[in-house]
Write a protein that binds this DNA or RNA. Structure first.
Lengths: 188, 188
DNA sequence: ACAGTGATGACAGGTTCTGAAATCACCGTA
DNA sequence: TACGGTGATTTCAGAACCTGTCATCACTGT
């Protein structure tokens, strides 16, 4: 197609993950990432808004997918079931990338500013879900609250999935976490 | 006490808010803030970890207060009631600062990176509450989930309080929001 | 007096991120 | 075959953020 080798973003992401695991996030400069990918610092910023963003590649796409799935769920399904279903339908995608997810999690856990960015992405996810719920006729504040707890359950499932030495599929942990949510909500 | 005029942090905060409202957050440099406060840029960084932090002055103290209050609530109180009570007991403090809170909110709303920092603070608040719940004998995942929805209700109340043209006290909005939470949770 | 304390200042430097303009292989078309 | 358009990449300059280090010096307690 173009004049340059394809997969620029992917090469930058791989170079970044490599360097972050080798020397740590802070000790790695954007210039170094770009050089390892055979590019310049400026090109990095043509592909990613900032240094952190290289660690959240498919996030925006995932959020859009979930929004659509929740909006398209059968009308007779309860909000929480629609959301849990949307997550579960995409859990296989995560299962295929567990090792990479663990590497990523390891980097994120060590750096506050990366966790800030992650929370921003999760907040965007919650907002997208709330949006989908509103189109399903659920008004605020129920839409926002339901979306928020759903993301909390999703986070819980994700944490258990990454910590699970048995490599149990994410789908199972999602089911268990939404069950926990139901149980806990009954005490409120 | 010291060799210099007191209230350095306060002066820096006020200078920052002034400049942020005058020219906007991005158009204001840390050096300008320091100069307006009669100090140098380096001194700013002796008091605040970074440029954003100047907008979150009492946050850490507030979080510690809430943690203590939730931990000290009567044992027979339900978790959610203990948390709502902890917030309500501090709502007067907010009522006294509504105008400043609105200025701050206005700045925050316009800048993504400031919202990231705010979410980090809210996450820390949720973690502190979860911590207090665990000392009350509530195990995870209930502690984390309960803390998360509480913060969501708190945010909801805060938004309504700031938007309310009647200046109804925060305590009222807290009550209403936790009521909404109860109502919504029943549908889960 | 006089050494200790601690907030502040001066200075140097690295890193992040942005704007503007130039490069140049590839593409479609004549 | 020529040729202008396209667009990802590069080059360059520079502002702003943030940090480390060391000096300053009014105030403190002895």
């Amino acid at each position: 197609m173009g004049r340059w080798p394809a997969g620029t973003q992917e090469r930058l992401q791989e170079a970044a993950i490599e360097l972050f695991t080798e020397r740590g996030y802070e000790r790695t400069t954007v210039a170094e990432i770009a050089t390892r990918a055979g590019l310049t610092e400026r090109t990095f910023y043509n592909h990613f808004a900032d240094k952190r963003e290289v660690l959240f590649p498919d996030q925006d796409w995932f959020i859009a997918e979930v929004r659509e799935a929740v909006g398209a769920a059968p009308a007779e399904q309860s909000p929480l079931d629609a959301i849990a279903g949307a997550f579960a339908a995409r859990s296989h995608w995560f299962d295929q990338r567990r090792a990479a997810a663990r590497r990523r999690r390891h980097i994120l856990d060590a750096h506050t500013d990366l966790q800030e960015r992650e929370r921003a992405k999760l907040a965007a996810l919650a907002e997208a879900i709330a949006d989908a719920l509103r189109t399903r006729g659920i008004p605020d504040p129920a839409a926002t609250l339901t979306a928020t707890v759903s993301v909390a359950a999703y986070q819980l499932a994700s944490a258990r999935w990454l910590a699970d030495p048995q490599h149990t599929p994410l789908g199972h942990h999602l089911h268990a976490s939404f069950e926990d949510l139901h149980r806990t909500a009954r005490t409120w």
